[in-house]
Amino acid sequence: MNLQTLGWQPFFQQQLTLDDYDTSVVARVSAHHRSGYQLLTEDREVTLAVHDSLPSMTVGDWVVLDKQMQFKRCLDRSSQFSRKAAGSKLAEQKIAANIDTVFIVMSLNDDFNLSRVERYLALTNEAQVEAVIVLTKADLCEDSYALAQQVQSLDAMLMVETVNALDPSSVQALAPWCKTGKTVAFLGSSGVGKSTLVNTLLQDDTQETGGIREDDSKGRHTTTGRTLHTMPSGGVLLDTPGMRELQLANVSQGLSDTFAEIEALAAQCRFSDCSHQNEPGCAIQKALQQGQLDERRLNNYLKLQREQARNSASLAQLRSQDKQLGKMIRSVQSENRARKNK
């Protein structure tokens, strides 16, 4: 194993100093558990226990260690994926870092949902990472071609591949994105066949797979953690658990890129604060009436806009509170030191 097979690229190389080459070791975070981080170097696996002195890291991060395998610093990221933490918890959760391509996996049975694809695309576009839509379980669908065309209609430039996750020759369609030095990640809801696809790409039964539930034709959730794997093709694969509550935050540019044609229409409305409902001169309503815009797509755009605005405001409030708390703690510590010195 060498750094390139772990996904090392010139972007990270440029961040090293001459001193780093003599006194340091470069490693990549391969797994993140509650108790600590697992890291891979060129010749060993290292474990770092979670400590207050460590920055917040995630799977895919590159770090610099000293010769005793102690943490020195984390390198700047080429990309980062994060979300609002699932549930009501007010926090931002990092999902992965330094990804080159995201395989957005969706099955062609009852899981098929264009609005969910748009949600993942907003996240991927915000990170400025290439997205490939991977459609699985075509054998359970009567007209896979028609559904694939629906996905393609979201964006003429979008890469869409239909594969049989159990067939290595079919999965070979994904090979161009899995070359040495490249890191790919999987996003998708539970049970769409990600684990089966991972096993085929790795040529190993690394991930446990589950069958199909008879009541709703959906697969069972099997992956429980984010981990890095090296592929026989030379690339690096990051598998993620199914994210049932992928709430968007701070992805305004990603939404603009995902719904570019809607935002272009909005710019033509008579009023700059048009809500696109019943205002006169609304270019979006006109496009709807003329059949140039899909109502489902518009409704999802407005829904995701509201969600990301709400979550972004909540996280901004949290950051402000954290700053105020930090100032208060530093003030108390300063006063305590002043009293001790008297």
Rank of each mutant, 00 (worst) to 15 (best):
K179R: 15
L3Q: 13
A264Y: 05
Q150R: 15
V29I: 10
D22A: 09
E118T: 07
V332F: 04
A287D: 08
L3E: 07
S88M: 00
Y145R: 14
V160A: 01
D257C: 15
R44D: 05
R226F: 01
Q324N: 04
E42A: 02
Q290K: 12
R297G: 09
V332L: 14
R119T: 07
H32F: 03
L65T: 09
V160R: 04
D110G: 13
V129S: 11
R244P: 05
L304V: 07
S275K: 15
E118K: 03
V192G: 09
L197H: 04
E208T: 13
S217Q: 10
A138G: 12
N336R: 07
A249I: 01
G225Y: 09
A283R: 04
G225T: 11
E214K: 15
T224D: 13
E214C: 08
I284L: 10
L202H: 07
S217K: 09
A127F: 12
T209S: 14
P55I: 02
A313M: 08
Q292T: 07
R310H: 01
S79F: 08
Q13K: 14
K182T: 06
F81L: 06
S256H: 14
Y120W: 09
M328G: 06
G188F: 06
D110N: 15
Q70K: 15
A313T: 14
G219T: 14
L246E: 06
A165N: 09
E161M: 13
V236F: 10
F103G: 04
Q203T: 10
G60E: 13
E130W: 09
T206V: 10
K340T: 12
L174N: 01
Q290I: 06
P232G: 06
Q172M: 06
E245Q: 01
A85P: 08
D215F: 08
V29R: 12
K303R: 03
T196A: 15
P232L: 03
G211R: 12
D155L: 02
D61C: 14
L90M: 00
V46K: 13
M328C: 01
E261G: 03
L65Y: 08
V163Q: 12
Q149W: 01
L140T: 04
A91I: 04
H229Q: 11
L123D: 00
S82N: 10
S144F: 09
V117P: 06
Q80E: 08
R297I: 00
G193P: 13
A185E: 03
D61V: 04
H33T: 11
Q38P: 02
A156S: 06
D139P: 09
D257A: 15
V59W: 11
L54Y: 08
K182L: 12
Q333C: 02
L197C: 08
